[in-house]
Design a protein around this nucleic acid. Structure first.
Lengths: 440, 440
DNA sequence: CTCGGTCAACGGTCAC
DNA sequence: GTGACCGTTGACCGA
């Protein structure tokens, strides 16, 4: 009664189909089971918890058991369908995962001492692969590739499970770093005043902050006002870079976007200030800054037809000071690294969304996703050679920072709801829609 | 004999040879499978549906993938056997087909990263760089254009449609449509005033224009001035969506971006005006419009601290009128479809860049890329059921439109170079860098 | 019904 | 350009 179907429904369908129009129509569910979710070929049922054809199932099984890691030659945007499925294996694998295939559903290598012939086949394969690796001058990979020999299958299985998790975690870190770099590239193009275009277009730009000190300009509120819309777009692009975002329905996307706009607006300036401006300049998302010191009037002056100096200070100095005291100082104290910042941003974004009014199954998925994030962070620390104590301490710092970000973010939200309600100064109308409770 | 193999073989071969000869003696099938039907060499089974040796199979595969067409120096009566097989390729290929080899059994190009060495390399990299992707210099040479074997089509026979080309053409159309839709989604988020956020975030938005009439607002030059930078970013994102863009070096990227900014600035307003504003409103990229009629002053008024009405009209009315007369009217006359617009945009972008100062090999690649585009367009017309005459006529229209776009674009460029030189009004500094010859 | 194993037939590679 | 070589794929099977 429960076996595969029940688990299928809770794990996959509940959250991939939480949009009303799909759940109402049962035939679409039946149709989706008849068609491979990965390549669209006629499917004969479920494989590894996703409606898929046997070919994609075999592909997925091979990829997992051999612990392969593919790299897309393009930008991980290859179309995967019946005719194109063999073109890019990286994207085919990602689509398998996206469509709900579960790495843990791949069983450990079975004991195959069923017949002489099979053993013979394996021995031959084993010998030939061994000799080829020996003849190769490159470092030998035998520890990575599972042996074809069936005799040690029992010993492999626990390691294999760990490796699967590592694989996912590693992938996650790669995704997050890629998206942050893209975000920086876009910000450079939008806000940099002095860089040459060659600097913007180059491939080698691995900087973890988008600006340099020479890009910083005194803040004007009218400048912020005009550039908040592109900034929201960039946050949306960051969110879309997350592999599972496209599977969310509209209302869940809305929740995620709202949360990210709110908390990124706190986090990004914090990191920029920590890296570029502290202790004199508080740097905003668009490389504009205000003076931190009370006597420094930069950015706090009157702006005709926009906002008065007094109101600026009344509304935003407390927020700025709280951000400095509770977030930026913590970043400085722990000497926050780029990777840690990227994790902090992701954890804040997903934790905030998971605490919102989303479907139960999505909530469950989000929590396992955050577990994976912590796992990836731990692996990162491990690769840096940190001890367990240091790892625990830095992870704890990050989690403490998260709660500070939530607190400051809430104050920021309330403050802007007040601004909008009393019309203290003109906010962008898309921002208002994201601040308000209802969507209109 | 080997019972499992035998049953396997019969099952597989029955499926592939579902012909009336299945009643023939099984042994004769096995005998015939033992020797190559083409050259008589010992064969190891079926290839492309004919019992053949691996050499003849490889020969057939190369011939099909490279779409080669051989000519026999004799009278197409050459004997093809084990010793003579390399003498006449025309007769060898002919015999391949005669013996039942099926061109459609040759599959599309597979993942190029799948090679033995490269795979090993990736796996090693995978191990060593668990998390330190930052320090990874990412060895694969980006400036090198890979093999693109399909572009080496010297001896093309038009009646033998290349399967691979069809795949690539299909992929190309898909990419272009996807990028245009993404472009529209981004424009909606940047410029829409009245849509609800749910409308922006929904997946089902397949509209081919980003705005509705209710989004249109009277133009202000200061508004254009402020929003040109996000627009350049969107053009950059469009360009980056092109699969091969990341393989270009910085200077080539610069050339492409310059060309696209120029011609998209002509093309996008043209399409928007044709679809939304004509004959009263000329619609810009950000949903702002000016009046087309000389008596309609909308958008042409004085703007304090930016630009005077007189200068606006002097600088931009001629450009607008030329765009209407030469481009928009042509779009209207041919009732340009969304897909055609997408192709027009791509053709203009790539043709303009290919005519610039880029490396010879890139130029060659660009031309074959444009050929592929025309092929994809032709396939699209074919799928719509258009006759050859109609296809030729519409393709001709599109090519004529291209040259008009180039002409108007050149005038637009000169006009803005003049504006920048005499400082007639303040242009965005990134735009200036893209207009000027040198990069500084 | 969906696992894993199997192997003929694919594609890519690279000395020759 | 050729063909031996090897890795990958997917229809098929038993469990």
């Amino acid at each position: 009664m429960d076996s595969p179907y029940f688990s299928n429904n809770t794990m996959v369908y509940d959250w991939s189909m939480c949009s009303p129009e799909t759940t109402t129509n049962t035939s679409s569910i039946l149709n989706s089971a008849k068609e491979c979710a990965v390549c669209g070929a006629p499917s004969n049922g479920y494989h590894f918890n996703a409606p898929s054809c046997s070919a994609c199932a075999a592909f997925f099984r091979r990829t997992v058991t051999l612990n392969r890691n593919f790299q897309c030659a393009q930008q991980s945007i290859c179309r995967v369908n019946y005719t194109m499925r063999v073109i890019c294996r990286a994207c085919r694998y990602h689509k398998c995962v996206q469509m709900g295939m579960d790495r843990s559903a791949v069983q450990p290598r079975r004991d195959c001492n069923a017949g002489r012939r099979k053993m013979l086949y394996h021995e031959i394969k084993h010998i030939s692969s061994t000799t080829s690796t020996i003849s190769n001058p490159s470092p030998p990979p035998p520890s990575q590739i599972p042996s074809y020999s069936s005799s040690i299958s029992e010993e492999i299985s626990p390691n294999l499970a760990i490796r699967n998790d590592c694989f996912e975690a590693e992938q996650l870190l790669d995704d997050l770093l890629r998206e942050e770099r893209l975000f920086n590239e876009r910000r450079r193009m939008l806000y940099c005043a002095h860089s040459s275009i060659s600097d913007l277009l180059t491939n080698d730009n691995l900087n973890d902050i988008p600006f340099t000190c020479s890009d910083l300009r005194p803040l004007t509120f009218s400048g912020i006002q005009k550039q908040i819309r592109p900034q929201i777009l960039l946050i949306y692009e960051w969110l879309r870079g997350w592999r599972h975002f496209q599977m969310l329905d509209t209302s869940d996307r809305f929740i995620f976007l709202r949360r990210c706009v709110l908390y990124h607006t706190v986090l990004d300036p914090s990191y920029l200030t920590y890296r570029l401006g502290f202790p004199t300049k508080y740097v905003m998302f668009n490389a504009m800054y205000v003076g931190i010191d009370e006597n420094d009037q930069t950015g706090w002056e009157d702006e005709d037809s926009c906002i008065k100096s007094e109101l600026k200070k009344k509304l935003y100095r407390p927020l700025m000071e709280r951000t400095i005291n509770e977030i930026i100082s913590a970043m400085r104290a722990s000497n926050l690294s780029f990777v840690e910042f990227v994790f902090l941003k992701a954890l804040v974004s997903f934790k905030a969304s998971a605490s919102s009014d989303i479907s139960k199954s999505l909530k469950k998925f989000m929590h396992s996703h955050m577990d994976l994030m912590l796992k990836a962070l731990s692996l990162h620390y491990q690769s840096l050679g940190l001890s367990k104590e240091e790892t625990a301490q830095r992870t704890g710092n990050l989690v403490l920072m998260m709660s500070n970000v939530f607190a400051v973010g809430m104050e920021c939200l309330e403050s802007h709801q007040k601004i909008q309600f009393f019309d203290l100064w003109q906010l962008d109308d898309l921002l208002i829609k994201l601040i308000n409770r209802s969507d209109r």
